[in-house]
Design a protein around this nucleic acid. Structure first.
Length: 189
DNA sequence: TAGGCCATCTGGTCCT
DNA sequence: AGGACCAGATGGCCTA
């Protein structure tokens, strides 16, 4: 396990722990003033960074774009508390995501090395693994993938049915069980 | 030392 | 209204 010194980053200026010479109350919030998009730099994430507002951002979802900051009408202290709570939730969310990645790493076969799979490697291997399993399962059931690589509707329905059954049973050894179902299915049909 | 990977913070947007 | 989700930014650690 790599120690990445992430829990605390003392050298970093955080919103909740700003440098003494910075006055959060007197600073215009990014995007909340008339200077929107005209600042050479904005303070986001407790750090100074280049302006994001002028075209660089990809965030253009929904009709709410251009909306002003949500105004909570609360004190600096209350906003600070909410921000800390929000950070904590985000941390927990990312931990859950990482746990899921770890579970995925353990579920897919790969050459064991000292170095753990990165996230992108994990996703890529998982995708390939699913493709390989699908091919095997279809072979067992006498079907085969069409040239496009996409199973037919009927085949997909069969796969989903077996997968659903597997989920309901919450099998300990998922793959074995899944393949057994498919084998049984094949024998019956 | 550069580049890859990652955790964390943050603000915007979506959803309930 | 508030939590979840998302993606950009930042900086630390590690390796080639």
């Amino acid at each position: 396990m790599k120690s990445k010194g992430k829990a605390v980053k003392p050298s970093r200026r955080t919103w909740s722990n700003p440098e003494p010479d910075l006055e959060p109350d007197t600073e215009p919030e990014p995007g909340s003033s008339e200077q929107e998009g005209s600042e050479a730099s904005v303070r986001i994430g407790g750090s100074w960074r280049g302006s994001l507002r002028s075209g660089g951002g990809k965030r253009q979802r929904g009709a709410g774009r251009g909306r002003r900051h949500r105004q909570h009408g609360s004190s600096t202290k209350e906003r600070s508390i909410r921000r800390l709570e929000s950070n904590e939730r985000e941390r927990q969310r990312m931990h859950k995501l990482n746990n899921a990645f770890q579970a995925l790493r353990e579920a897919i076969p790969h050459v064991k090395t000292d170095k753990k799979l990165s996230k992108i490697e994990t996703l890529t291997l998982a995708k390939n693994y699913i493709k390989a399993l699908t091919t095997i399962v279809l072979d067992m059931s006498g079907a085969c993938l069409p040239s496009g690589g996409v199973p037919s509707e009927a085949t997909t329905a069969k796969l989903l049915q077996c997968y659903q059954q597997h989920l309901e049973e919450e099998a300990e050894d998922g793959l074995t069980q899944y393949l057994t179902h498919m084998h049984t299915f094949n024998q019956r049909s």
